[in-house]
Amino acid sequence: MGSLPRLPGADTTHAGPARDAGVTVLHQPILDVARGTAAGFHAVPEVSRGRLADPVPRWAVTVRTIDAALTASATLPTNTFISVPVPLDLVGDPAVRSRLAAHGQLGGVVLDVTDFSSELVSRAVPALDDYRAAGARIAVGGRDDAQPELGSIVRLRPAIIRLGAAWTRGIDTHPSRRTAIEVTGQLAGQLDAWILADAVETAAELRVLAQLGVPLARGRFVGVAGPAWPTIPGATRTALPPATRTPDGVLRSLLQQAYTTRHPEATRSVLAEATGFEHVVVVDEQHRPVALLHHAGGRHEPVDVMTVNVDTPVADVVSRAMARPAEHRFVPLCCTDGAGRFVGILRMERLMAHLADGASGKPT
């Protein structure tokens, strides 16, 4: 929401070595499976070891990747994000925090936590909370083919749960792996997180993932890393099954307006100009919703924000919303256009009434 605060005494002594570490950062496309387009790009560091007498320190590779990815993010295609790998043990490193603080607002940035270890979760949570408050989203995946256990996933509150090669490799011939992804998808829905299937290497794997409703995919078949912003190959788009759910246009008729503000301090105290509004939506500079405030007990309380595209079928929206934890299940949803900009809120009462009218045969 706001900018990441600079830490007193943040270590900037690593700046020179990181820039001179012989690290080239490429970008690998991340597929929006439903639309067959690029949802984002993952920063991939390549180390030119032949130029160096000594191995490049991990922190130097990480900081260089952050520098390059955040600089390149200024030219990101519309409605895409940049994913930046950060090892869990370096999430709170002073050099890493300094680089992210220098960038300020982190909207459109996904910090992909790698090299996961349950023992390090507690130490990483404060830094991740700061990055999230600055607008970043968090992705979590396990070390190599392993996955973090449930408790660690919940504590880190990721926006994306990344599934490695052990989940996706040969999924077209392994029913047990399909079942595992379905169960993980249910967990992701309760956390309002998305699944990203990594290491997709064949058309058959991608087709099964699409049939399972996995929203994001990455791997050699989806597209290899390259400079600038690589496009999704034609063979990848051709491999996707025809869309089985098409926009029904209902959400546009159910939208309601809400008071919006670009002032992050709205989450800490009631703005005088927002008095009388039941809901306040905090948006960033691109008018994308980053927080939702609900009026209760004489004040506005921040609640988790769930966003849905205005062209999403209404049944899909209700299914996602009802997968939320019970205490947030009936909180309004923030509706966005194709560029992620806020266009209105959706009250669960109106969505449920629409479904009930349709079931009873009443005109909607």
Rank of each mutant, 00 (worst) to 15 (best):
I195R: 00
T71I: 11
V318H: 13
V86F: 03
E149C: 03
A193K: 00
I345F: 08
R51V: 12
Q28H: 03
P325E: 15
P313A: 08
E273K: 01
A193V: 00
D284Q: 07
D248K: 02
R288W: 14
M306S: 11
L26S: 07
E273D: 15
T173F: 14
D89E: 10
S98M: 13
V91G: 00
E265F: 05
V224H: 09
A210H: 04
L254V: 05
I30C: 09
E182V: 11
A134Y: 03
I171P: 00
T71C: 12
T202A: 01
V63M: 09
S319R: 13
W167N: 13
W229S: 00
G141E: 09
M348F: 11
V270H: 08
A321S: 14
D54E: 06
V44T: 14
A315W: 07
A321T: 00
E278G: 08
R299W: 12
C335A: 14
V91H: 03
R299V: 05
A136C: 04
A133D: 12
V61A: 07
S83P: 12
G36E: 04
P158D: 01
P5G: 03
A165R: 15
I66Q: 02
R329E: 05
H14L: 15
H354F: 11
P289A: 06
R268T: 07
G16W: 08
R64C: 07
G298T: 09
A166M: 06
L88A: 07
E285N: 13
V222H: 06
A323S: 11
V84E: 03
D145E: 14
P8K: 01
D311L: 04
C334I: 14
T202Q: 04
T168A: 12
T184Y: 13
V110F: 00
A258T: 05
G22P: 07
L333A: 10
R19S: 14
H295C: 14
R132G: 01
V280D: 06
R324G: 13
V282M: 10
V282L: 02
P55S: 02
R157I: 02
P158N: 01
I195V: 06
S73D: 04
V84K: 03
L52F: 13
G142F: 02
G2Q: 04
F277S: 09
R252D: 04
H300S: 09
A339C: 15
D32K: 00
V25A: 03
H174L: 05
T71L: 15
V318T: 10
L254K: 05
G107V: 07
S269N: 09
A10R: 08
D93W: 06
A38T: 05
P264M: 08
G298F: 02
L106R: 01
I345R: 06
V281E: 09
R169Y: 05
Q211I: 12
I66D: 00
T275E: 15
A315M: 15
A359L: 10
R220F: 07
D316Q: 14
P87V: 01
T168N: 02
T12N: 15
R299T: 12
D130A: 12
L7N: 06
Q211S: 12
D198K: 06
G297A: 09
R268V: 08
K362A: 08
L191K: 11
